[in-house]
Amino acid sequence: MASKSQQAEHYFVPNPVIYPVIVSLGLLSLASGFIFNVNNYAAGGWMMLVGTILILSMVFKWMGSIIAESEGGLYKKWEDKSFRVGMIVFICSEVAFFAAFFGALFFMRVISIPELASFDPNFTMYKDFVANWPSAGPGGVVLGKEYVPAKFEPMGAWGLPAINTLLLLTSGATVTWAHWGILKNNRRQLVLGLFMTVALGIAFLACQAVEYHHAYTEMGLTLGAGAYGASFFMLTGFHGFHVLLGTIMLIVILLRSMKGHFTAQRHFGFEGVAWYWHFVDVVWLGLFVFVYWL
């Protein structure tokens, strides 16, 4: 809440910038390129490339100017609070995004699959379908006159996924340890903690890549494997994508820490990323329980 002392301050209003417009143009190009691509029009790939380059270069510059402003001492307590509140709200919106996919998973598992199996066999086209989970749904292939349900193996919880859980939980601890470091102004601890976190993040991604490869090549578990396959890959995929982003941001923070950025009092950049990392961590726990385990 605004207090007397802030009233004398000037709130930092950045100068006009061109980056946002160009990012938007990049997104337009990326999106339409993607659409052309999936609809088999030739120009799509090029448009996606141009869009990606525009976006990445602008994000790079935009973040660069934020870092410069931060180091230039333009952000004080007042601005800092804006960033904090903003980050919290942003993470809430991410929660809602994942909620949609969890919602889809629960809906199919609890409502639509049992319902499909419950119809009167005299009337339904899916006579032989029994509800169980994991399920790829009633529609299989008809070979000759025989009906064969789609075949796949579900992903067990206690192999790689359990290791991944350990990796992520540990990384949550190391990033907190790094935070203690900066609070004590112990920069060695900060850098070391961040380094370990990044390493754990990368290890997680590597395990997930192995897991996906295994699923596609040996288990018949693909995006097309009905309700289970779709929700499995969309949930873990979007989560993995968030881990990737988080890792990249952690790397940036690590490099900044090595350059001597952040102080014990002012380190929103670090904390924002740490919050994001914890959020990704919590989502994983949800995934582990509801996608892999139960």
Partner: peptide, 11 residues
């Protein structure tokens, strides 16, 4: 994917 397709258990 089959989120909205009964054949895959979607709805």
């Amino acid at each position: 994917t089959h989120f909205f397709d009964a054949a895959g258990g979607g709805d």
